[in-house]
Design a protein around this nucleic acid. Sequence first.
DNA 1: TAAAAAATAATACGATTGTCTTATATTTGA
DNA 2: TCAAATATAAGACAATCGTATTATTTTTTA
Lengths: 193, 193
Amino acid sequence: MGTKGSANRQRIVDAADHLFYSRGYNQTSFSDISDETGIPRGNFYYYFKTKEDILAAVVDARVGEFKAVLKNCEEATSDPMQRLHALAQLPLQHETQVLQYGCPIGSLSSELVKEQDTEISQVRLTAVFDLLKSWIIEQLDKLGQSSRGDDIAKDLLARMQGIILIANVYNDAPFLHRSVNDLQSWLNQTLSN
Amino acid sequence: MGTKGSANRQRIVDAADHLFYSRGYNQTSFSDISDETGIPRGNFYYYFKTKEDILAAVVDARVGEFKAVLKNCEEATSDPMQRLHALAQLPLQHETQVLQYGCPIGSLSSELVKEQDTEISQVRLTAVFDLLKSWIIEQLDKLGQSSRGDDIAKDLLARMQGIILIANVYNDAPFLHRSVNDLQSWLNQTLSN
DNA sequence: TAAAAAATAATACGATTGTCTTATATTTGA
DNA sequence: TCAAATATAAGACAATCGTATTATTTTTTA
């Protein structure tokens, strides 16, 4: 798998990424990915031994995507507070998708956490959450909140997840906007101590 | 379907309820329900025309379950504030299941909201959420919060969902307890105005 | 108690699932 | 340039899916 062929592999991952998000992991079949990429279904085995291997590649891809997003946040401003605000506002930048499909991390996680018998690595499952959490803690450290860092980070993630879930289920754009706004007030209030 | 037979129908719904919660709707097959009930797989058609009909019955059952829970809250105390606190504490009463499988409403909703092509009634999807929301609004009315009722109700639901999702994904009991506690502080603070 | 209705059992159906194999084409390196 | 490695294509595989049908038993009702 040297120079070529990586292209097709990437196309599979891209299609799977999109389909896992819009339809869910279990509801996405090899045929679906085949239809979207034009690559024959039976050919996937050359790139991935199992469907879970595709999932692992998709999770890795999302980790990469979010790393890029966070890097953007870091380059936009050096103020940790503004960075956290940027993160909180992230759902608004993907409003249409969030309202339609929810959070790409949260919805996938809540689907995969139910797969008890299969061998979906728990490490992989929370990989994106872990990335976000440690980044948040980094910012909080700079704000002198190192003692409460872990708790506040989890709180922020939980709030974002709850907001997105309700906004998604009810397809409620006004709620999403108002709640993100409230979330920012909460950030200001919580971090002013 | 007079006197008898309702028993088997109910057993199917009960098994499906449990399996949809622990494995998810799409990951639960007729064979799974058959294994759990002992009722032959091919026999389900007698009681339900399609799998979605079973889902509808399960959603109806959960609506019934939550109505009973809310009735309990009402009988325990007549104070709307204490009732809301009881609701916020509900996840702790089902701690083990919540940590393992998440919220029976939230996880199912976030799974079903991705089924765009099929004809899963959106009304049914949010039935339990709607029930909870209107009950919360009722309590808020009595607290003189009728103007902000809808917003606060959604906020409470969103917060609970976010807490449960993070607690579930990380299987984090301490976070669940702390967050429910924080949620109650928030209730007191929000409703003291 | 006999006919009608309801319930149960068991099996079959076509379609689709993820996986795997084989055959052909393309690219690479000596 | 020619063998070796890589990539692509296409189809077959058993298993399982939700659904449907038929036959038998049980219950109800007149």
